[in-house]
Simulated assay, not measured.
Amino acid sequence: MPNQKEYFPDLCNTSDFFVPHKNSNHLNAQDVVSDLVARAKDISVATFNCFADGEKLVIKDEIVANLIYEIQTKLEMIEKILPLAFESKGA
């Protein structure tokens, strides 16, 4: 029988799960935030392209829901790391 690890369902929320690395600093956080924003923007464009003329959904609604969830996940991660991005220790 394989070694079973304990599962913590309350940590399924990205915001609760995400913890910055102990050696990270505000510069690392700024890079991560910038990358997450860029990826969220790309996903928002992809989501918009799921509609014909910005009105009629032309693909499965499940795909759009997944794209929106991806945007939400990125925003939760940004929200979690943003305070560190503005924290400068002894610059």
Rank of each mutant, 00 (worst) to 15 (best):
Lys5Ile: 06
Asp35Leu: 15
Thr73Val: 05
Gln72Val: 03
Pro20Arg: 09
Cys50Gln: 03
Asp42Pro: 03
Ile81Ala: 08
Val32Asp: 12
Leu75Cys: 11
Lys60Gln: 11
Gln72Arg: 08
Met1Asp: 06
Asn25Asp: 15
Thr47Lys: 01
Val37Tyr: 12
Ala38Ile: 13
Asp42Tyr: 12
Phe48Trp: 05
Leu82Asp: 02
Lys60His: 12
Leu67Gly: 01
Asn28Leu: 10
Ile81Pro: 08
Val19Phe: 09
Lys74Val: 00
Phe86Asn: 01
Phe51Pro: 00
Met1Ile: 04
Cys50Glu: 02
Ser24Glu: 11
Gln72Trp: 03
Gln72Lys: 06
Ile71Tyr: 01
Asn3Ser: 03
Asn3Cys: 00
Val64Arg: 01
His26Lys: 06
Leu57Lys: 07
Val37Asp: 07
Met1Glu: 06
Asp35Ile: 13
Ile68Gln: 03
Val19Tyr: 10
Asn49Tyr: 09
Ile71Leu: 00
Pro2Leu: 07
Ala38Gln: 15
Asn49Asp: 13
Asp53Ala: 08
Lys80His: 05
Pro83Tyr: 00
Val33Asn: 04
Leu82Ser: 04
Ala65Leu: 04
Phe48Val: 04
Arg39Val: 12
Thr14His: 11
Ala38Cys: 14
Glu76Phe: 08
Glu55Thr: 02
Gly90Arg: 12
Val19Gln: 13
Ser24Arg: 07
Cys12Phe: 14
Thr73Asn: 09
Phe8Val: 11
Ala46Lys: 12
Gly90Phe: 07
Lys41Val: 14
Leu27Pro: 00
Gly90Gln: 13
Ile71Pro: 01
Asn28Arg: 07
Gly90Asn: 15
Ile71Val: 12
Asp42Trp: 10
Ile71Gln: 05
Leu82Glu: 07
Asn28Ala: 11
Pro9Gly: 09
Cys12Lys: 13
Glu87Val: 01
Asn66Ile: 00
Phe8Tyr: 15
Gly54Asn: 02
Phe18Ile: 14
Thr47Trp: 00
Thr14Gln: 13
Ala85Arg: 04
Gln30Tyr: 03
Leu84Gln: 09
Lys89Tyr: 11
Pro2Tyr: 08
Pro20Gln: 11
Lys5Pro: 02
Phe17Pro: 02
Gly90Thr: 09
Ala91Thr: 13
Lys60Asp: 15
Thr14Asn: 10
Phe86Ser: 02
Phe51Ala: 01
Asp61Val: 08
Asn23Thr: 10
His21Ser: 13
Glu79Val: 01
Pro2Trp: 05
Ile68Ser: 01
Leu84Lys: 08
Lys56Arg: 10
Phe8Ser: 10
Asp16Gly: 08
Phe86Tyr: 07
Phe51Gln: 00
Lys5Thr: 07
Val64Lys: 01
Asp53Thr: 03
Asp61Ile: 08
Val33Tyr: 10
Phe48Lys: 09
Asn23Gln: 10
Lys80Gln: 12
Asp61Ala: 14
Val58Met: 06
Glu79His: 07
His26Met: 05
Ala65Phe: 02
Tyr7Glu: 12
Thr14Ser: 13
Asp31Ser: 15
Asp53Tyr: 04
